[in-house]
């Protein structure tokens, strides 16, 4: 079983588009979308939902006004300014620590488990499974939802004897990215030749090194800026990662996106599509060595 996680650091480098392209090329795999607060992979896959699960994690405080004596104790101990002057709990700010409930002299604060989102198993037209999730707007514990998605994908892969899990990771370097990378087999960094792309690549590479993960780099829109493209290459070699390949800037990509298609489907003969297929072959070879 090999789990490939696609990350980028910076958002919008083409991570999801790239993952969707790999999805059309890899056979016998399970797909997982770990970008849980902006899950877009399924818009390209059009999988039909066959399973839906609630994602319940952590707790949220609630104050029963009938019992509350307005003593102010809870407001005093809450470090997240989550309780208003009229003793209402702001669900967005509450971290569910329980300090208010501990302090409350009348037992007016209850702690129910919080519903933070849902995760789904979908079946694609090619009879393959995809796991994706939706965090409730503004909810917490997104890292744990990522873990739930990956766990489900692994379960399905084991059940069906799939050899590959292809995971679309979230942007950034925070909790969701950490949760996406831990225990993965291989990381693909999708970057772009821009001042921000290079900077963010550095940080996400550092994170991957921290987890001792092998990985390789794809430079998207590579001809946009030669000098930053070169800098990306230097950076990846210097940090001990290999270059999988470069994909040239392709105006047709945004046309394809509007129709929710991958560039491989929309324009199979363009230079970008050629580059993507080459990258796939190289990635496949690399995976055999793991």
């Amino acid at each position: 079983m090999k789990e490939i996680v696609v990350v980028s650091g910076k958002g919008g480098t083409g991570k999801t588009s790239f993952t969707a392209c790999m999805a059309t090329l890899f056979k016998k795999k399970v797909l997982a979308d770990c970008d849980v607060d902006a899950a877009n992979l399924n818009l390209l896959l059009n999988a039909i939902v066959v399973e839906e699960h609630n994602f319940v994690s952590g707790h949220k405080a609630a104050i029963n006004k009938d019992i509350c004596v307005s003593c102010g104790g809870c407001r005093e101990v809450c470090r997240f300014q989550a309780i208003s002057e009229d003793y209402r709990v702001d669900g967005f700010s509450c971290e569910g620590c329980g300090a208010c409930s501990y302090r409350c002299p009348t037992g007016a604060v209850s702690f129910a488990k919080a519903l933070c989102g849902h995760y789904f198993v979908g079946k694609t037209g090619k009879q393959e499974y995809a796991v994706f999730a939706e965090l409730l707007p503004g909810a917490e514990n997104s890292g744990k939802l990522v873990t739930a998605v990956r766990k489900k994908a692994l379960e399905i892969a084991l059940e069906n004897g799939n050899k590959i899990i292809l995971t679309d990771g979230p942007p950034g370097i925070g909790c969701t990215v950490i949760a996406s990378l831990t225990g993965a087999s291989f990381v693909v960094f999708v970057t772009e030749p821009t001042v921000s792309g290079v900077h963010d690549l550095k940080r996400v590479m550092e994170l991957s090194k921290h987890f001792k993960l092998p990985g390789a780099v794809v430079i998207n829109k590579s001809d946009l800026n030669r000098s930053y493209s070169n800098e990306n290459v230097f950076l990846c070699l210097e940090r001990g990662f290999n270059l999988l390949g470069s994909i040239p800037y392709e105006p047709l990509v945004s046309q394809a996106q509007r129709q929710a298609k991958t560039i491989l489907e929309y324009a199979p003969d363009c230079a970008a599509s050629d580059a993507i297929r080459q990258i796939y072959r190289k990635l496949n070879k690399r995976l055999e060595t793991l």
Binding site: G12, V36, P137, G138, E140
Partner: peptide
């Protein structure tokens, strides 16, 4: 920050 989770909520609060 990108996304719609807690860090976004914190920023727009």
């Amino acid at each position: 920050p990108p996304g719609t989770s807690c860090s976004f909520v914190e920023t727009i609060s």
